[in-house]
């Protein structure tokens, strides 16, 4: 473009053309990234970092709301106590917590199932890397285990609703359903991704060259599991 360069048709010594690396291979083969980590994986980690704050805020909201609810029940606020059956309120007031609501063994079982799905997810990734054709089995198993967890959550929500805990009734109901519901929505999103992978796997399109795709879904899935461990501990186990 410049006169000098045009005249002798050679790049000036200091110009970027003169110092460019010969990256012809690069253009077709592997892509250089500054961190040596693929963009997609980096992006997934960043997204999960953001999700941490999302769940952090939701869990804080739940903790505060539950504490306020219990305080009001103990204090005997008639506007709060009238939102649930009297005997349940009585139990809450006596235990000074919402623990009587929970069926710990049931939720422990469904939590265990969700945790196991992390194992099958790892196996699915391994099978994809090894390209041994078993990834469809493990991916399906992961999606299935996730679905069982969701079914358990739906059952639990129904049971709570019958016992008198509604979304709009009181603070605890709003906070409980919102927190666990947000997590459930995340699991559901994960199941949809897994099903897409299962579909690809059955069409033979999920070979070892796409192992990273499985890994990315796996990262998300493990994150959702870890969040559940936190939620289970905070919501169900700590009085």
């Amino acid at each position: 473009m410049t006169d000098v360069a045009a005249l002798d048709n050679r790049p000036v010594a200091n110009s970027y053309l003169a110092t460019a690396l010969d990256d012809h291979d690069d253009a077709h083969g592997g892509h250089r990234t500054s961190l040596g980590l693929s963009n997609m994986k980096l992006a997934m980690w960043l997204f999960l970092g953001s999700e941490c704050l999302l769940f952090g805020a939701l869990i804080s909201t739940y903790l505060l709301s539950k504490a306020r609810f219990v305080t009001e029940v103990v204090a005997g606020n008639p506007l709060v106590t009238s939102t649930m059956p009297a005997e349940l309120i009585q139990e809450f007031a006596e235990s000074q917590s919402v623990e009587p609501m929970y069926d710990i063994p049931f939720t422990s079982a469904s939590s265990f199932i969700l945790l196991m799905s992390s194992l099958t997810m790892v196996l699915a990734h391994k099978a994809t890397v090894e390209d041994n054709g078993q990834n469809k089995i493990w991916l399906s198993a992961t999606a299935l285990l996730g679905s069982i967890f969701i079914a358990g959550q739906v059952y639990e929500f129904t049971a709570f609703y019958r016992e008198g805990l509604t979304y709009t009734g009181n603070l605890f109901g709003s906070a409980f359903y919102t927190l666990t519901g947000f997590h459930g929505a995340h699991v559901t999103g994960g199941i949809l991704m897994l099903l897409s992978l299962v579909y690809m796997a059955f069409r033979g399109k999920l070979r070892s060259d796409r192992a990273e795709t499985v890994e990315l879904v796996g990262l998300y899935w493990h994150f959702v599991d870890i969040v559940w461990v936190l939620i289970f501990t905070i919501v169900y186990l700590i009085p």
Partner: peptide
């Protein structure tokens, strides 16, 4: 709240009560 004494619990109730 009618528990026989004026205490912190009463302060927790909505102001109109």
């Amino acid at each position: 709240n009618g528990d026989g004494e004026v205490n912190d619990d009463d302060w927790e109730l909505p102001v109109q009560f």
